[in-house]
Structure formats: structure tokens, C-alpha cells
Design a protein around this nucleic acid. Structure first.
Length: 466
RNA sequence: GGCGCGGUAGCCAAGUGGUAAGGCAGAGGUCUGCAAAACCUUUAUGCACCGGUUCGACUCCGGUUCGCGCCUCCA
């Protein structure tokens, strides 16, 4: 089966190919930079990363754009409270976010774009909508009249036909003609940051930024638009209304939404005190890879129930994968090649790829790899895994890792050099041979403190970094 | 209230109209001077509950129940 994705528009798993057959034009709703990202945010961005990597695995070229929302109510309030420029506040959290992406081994989208650097494009888009009659003004703000847009609700599958147009609703300080109408341009209030526009000084509404930037960099029709499930309505619905209202063309062919993460069966919330950031988990002694593994091991359309126990388990799983790779690389093997192993590798790879193609079923893909590992470990024990089989096993692991990216250990700065490690191991081996076990244990402990773990195997000593 | 999703072993979870993947934990074992390492084996007569359809259902249909999501800002 070819690569397929669940499309929120059709509520079906559909086969995916970019419209030009080669380059995937993809847009992802990025973070609002007013705080550290929590693991729920990171799940969605990890999903983007998985999708990116699989699309590339399948030979497509990526043109992926992600926005940074750096102007928004909370940001304005906080930066004004602190008495600092808005950009000083947002740049700080943008930096933290990009660091977290890096730590989580997420690939950077081809373009990361800031809302505040595209005000012009947003104003242009609003003017286009004005000309086409999709807007109305109210007290210096500009609103989108959804009753003008046929098909409003087609993404979130809500029926808005019962909504009474013209029933004037007061919402906050803004006057809207219809409860569902949303603001395109907010009139300036007090001292808050504002930009000049033909319709008066103010700032853009949240929804217009994504439409403007996505269309600027990717054209009128995107191949894929992603985001968290909660964004489907109203954010993405509004993006459709804006973009399709202006261009008259479909805005995105595929809408792909990542489900939420829960902690211990509950929604993350301040009152429950169960909001974790990457930094929180690292402080508790967990690794970023373990979080990456947990986030990736549950298919993106399923709610993910996060527990610290599963995070611990993820680390053990990663260690097992790494140990296996080390074993394949270092075990002494007899000459020849066993057909049975070749067959297992071929089957495992086929199952891995078919699972990923099937709407990114990462759980099943992972199972294929673990199954192969268990079977071939047994064959290694029995001497049936031969020299000529190394390449196929390593190839499977390499392919797996182009998507999962957890096998490589990042050596901490200031760590012990390989040569120093080797020298100590040689000394320990000599001590062992002389039955000076206290000395050999001493060296083992010394290395352990430096983050080096030794394993005595029948083929000699094997070591790895923790 | 409207629309929608889900309840599979201690935990995280995949899956199919034909008799339950995988990972972690637990138990047993192999190797080892020892081992905190590594590896192997094992672990649900049953897939929320009650009916129905069927030769056969965890898988389809109906009902019940529990949990969750969107409908307002939210990944």
C-alpha cells in the first residue's frame, strides 16, 4: 500500500502524493511563544517531525513552513507587565522552543516564520477579503462574516446552518454581527503594540497570520496542513474561510491533526499540577530520547496516556535497541550468510514500511523491528547469524533510525576520549587475567562514573556510553 | 444539548469476522570471578457489560456503562 494519511476533511485514510508528484508543500501551526513548550505541545511537533521524515523516506522533497506566533493577547499582557518590548519577551521563548526542538532531535522545517514579520501580507489579505465582500468593520476592527462563506464548517464537520446571521452578539470589547464571526484586525487599545493599516492602527487577529504566511510561501493550495486536534475548530476552519475566500481555490488538500496527550488519564492542567516540560523531565533524570520514544510509539491519532512509568520503560527499550546494534557491530561471526536471516530482515523491513505507510502506524512499525531483534538475537546466540548477515541487519536499523532517530548516543562535552577508555579496559583485562579482581572492579567503577558501561562477553569486553 | 472518539494483561499499547503484535515491569534461566550488564524463555481461554447477526465476533449491529474531546483560548 502506498503512503496514506487520515484526512480530517474527508474523515478517511487517503493515499497521499504531492500535487506536483515531487515536492510536498506543508504548513504546520507552530508555537505561541509566551512560555516553555509542554510535552503535549512537543507531541504535536514530534508528529510533524515523524511525518516529515516519512515523506522524505518515501522520496519526496519537502517544503515545510512553520510559523511562530509572536503577537497575541497573552504575549502583549505579559510583556507590558514586565515593561519590556514584546519582541524581547517572545525572542526568549522562541529560543527555548528551538532548543527544545533540537534536544528532541526534531528536524527544522525549511522555513520558520514569525507573524510580526508578515503584517504586510496579512493586511493585503484582509484587503482582498474586503474587496470581495467577506468583511465588515466595527469600531476600527475588521471582522470576517462567515455567513458569506459557503462551506464554513466543512473541516470540523459542524453544521452552522442553524446559526442566525444578524443576531448581534457582544463579545468582550468587540462587536460582532454574528457569534461565529471572527476578527481579522483588532483596533488598537491603549498602549499595546500596533501597526498602521488602511483600516486603522491595530494588530492582526490570530487566524489571519497562518493564511497569509502559508499562501505567501506555499501558494494558494497546500499539500498538507497540520496541527493539534484542538485547532481544527475554529482556527483551521477560519483559515479555510480566509484563504479560500480570497483565492477561490481549495486551501489544503490534506488536513492532518495530531491527538492530545494526557497525563495519568487526565488532561494536563495547572490545577492538577501535571504539566511537564522537557526541562522538567530532564531534571527528573529522564532523557530527551526517552520522551521522543514515548511520543513516537503511540500512533498520532490516538490519545497518548503519558506516565512516568512508560517514560522509564522507553529508556529501557532504547537501551535494548542500542545494545543490539552494538552487538551486530562487534560480535565475532563465522563466515558465510544465512538465508533465514536475510529473509527475516526483508520481512521486517517490509512490515516496517507498510506500517508507516498506513497512516504512520508507528506502534506496528516498532513491533516489526523488535520482533526482528528478538529472533536474530537468538540466532546470534546459536551461531546461526553469520558475517554476511551483518549488513542487512544494520541496514534495517539505519532505515528505522532515519525516522525514529534514537540509536545514536550524543557524547556529552568533556567526556572521556575513546582511547583513554580503551587503555583502561586493556588494563582491567590484564588485571582480570591475573585474578586481581579488586583492581578490575575498581577500573569498572571508575569507567562507570565517567558514563561508560562495560559488558564482558565471550568475545571480549564491549563498552558503550550511558 | 449537538457532533465525535475510546474502554485489550500490573503499566504503555497494535490488531483482525477464523481463534490475541510489540515494549516495560514481574517470574524463571543462560553467560560471568562477581555483576548493577547482555541475552533467552514465560506472562490475557480472553479483548468494559448485556443482547443480536454468523458455522464462527475482541473484530459487525443494537443497548448499557465508564472515560475523554470539540462546540470559547488551547498542541
Amino acid at each position: 500500500m502506498a503512503l496514506s494519511l487520515f484526512n480530517t476533511l474527508s474523515l478517511k485514510v487517503e493515499e497521499f502524493t504531492p500535487s506536483d508528484g515531487r515536492t510536498v508543500r506543508m504548513y504546520s501551526c507552530g508555537p505561541t511563544v509566551y512560555n516553555f513548550a509542554h510535552i503535549g505541545n512537543l507531541r504535536t511537533f514530534t508528529f510533524n517531525d515523524t511525518l516529515r521524515r516519512w515523506l522524505r523516506y518515501r522520496g519526496f522533497v519537502l517544503n515545510h513552513v512553520m510559523n511562530i506566533t509572536d503577537v497575541e493577547d497573552k504575549i502583549i499582557r505579559k510583556s507590558m507587565e514586565l515593561g519590556i518590548p514584546m519582541s524581547e519577551y517572545t525572542l526568549k521563548y522562541e529560543k527555548f522552543f528551538l532548543e527544545d526542538m533540537d534536544t528532541m532531535r526534531m528536524e527544522k522545517p525549511e522555513k520558520i516564520v514569525r507573524a510580526t514579520e508578515h503584517i504586510h501580507e496579512m493586511v493585503d489579505l484582509i484587503e482582498k477579503l474586503q474587496v470581495k465582500g467577506y468583511t465588515y468593520d466595527s469600531d476600527g476592527s475588521v471582522y470576517y462574516r462567515i455567513s458569506k462563506f459557503e462551506g464554513y464548517g466543512k473541516l470540523s464537520h459542524h453544521d452552522f446552518s442553524g446559526i442566525q446571521a444578524g443576531a448581534r452578539v457582544d463579545n468582550d470589547e468587540y462587536d460582532k454581527d454574528d457569534a461565529r464571526d471572527f476578527v481579522l484586525w483588532k483596533a488598537r487599545k491603549g498602549e499595546e503594540p500596533a501597526w498602521d493599516a488602511p483600516f486603522g492602527a491595530g494588530r492582526p487577529g490570530w487566524h489571519i497570520e497562518c493564511s497569509a504566511m502559508a499562501m505567501k510561501y506555499l501558494g494558494d493550495t497546500l499539500d498538507i496542513h497540520t496541527g493539534g486536534v484542538d485547532l481544527a475548530f475554529p482556527h483551521h476552519e477560519n483559515e479555510i474561510a480566509q484563504s479560500e475566500g480570497a483565492s477561490g481555490k481549495p486551501f489544503a488538500r490534506f488536513w492532518v491533526h495530531c491527538e492530545h496527550l494526557h497525563v495519568d488519564m487526565q488532561k494536563m492542567s495547572k490545577s492538577l499540577g501535571n504539566i511537564f516540560t522537557l526541562r522538567d523531565l530532564v531534571e527528573l533524570g529522564h532523557t530527551p530520547e526517552a520522551l521522543r520514544f514515548v511520543l513516537m510509539s503511540v500512533p498520532y491519532r490516538k490519545k497518548l496516556n503519558f506516565t512516568l512509568e512508560s517514560l522509564q520503560g522507553a529508556q529501557t527499550s532504547i537501551d535494548r535497541l542500542r545494545n543490539y546494534k552494538l552487538r551486530i557491530q562487534t560480535d565475532k561471526l563465522a563466515e558465510g550468510s544465512n538465508e533465514a536471516v536475510t529473509k527475516l530482515a526483508t520481512e521486517a523491513l517490509a512490515k516496517f514500511e507498510a506500517s508507516m505507510d498506513d497512516d504512520l502506524n508507528t506502534a506496528e512499525a516498532l513491533a516489526a523491528v523488535f520482533e526482528f531483534i528478538r529472533e536474530t538475537n537468538t540466532m546470534l546466540d546459536q551461531g546461526q547469524f553469520l558475517e554476511g548477515n551483518r549488513a542487512a541487519a544494520l541496514d534495517l536499523l539505519a532505515r528505522f533510525d532515519t525516522v525514529f532517530d534514537i540509536l545514536e548516543v550524543k557524547v556529552a562535552a568533556g567526556g572521556m576520549e575513546d582511547s583513554a577508555v580503551e587503555a583502561l579496559i586493556a588494563e582491567r583485562t590484564a588485571a582480570k587475567k591475573a585474578k586481581q579482581f579488586s583492581r578490575s572492579d575498581e577500573i569498572r567503577n571508575q569507567l562507570l562514573e565517567a558514563g561508560i558501561v562495560l559488558e564482558d562477553t565471550k568475545d571480549g569486553v564491549r563498552w558503550k556510553r550511558k
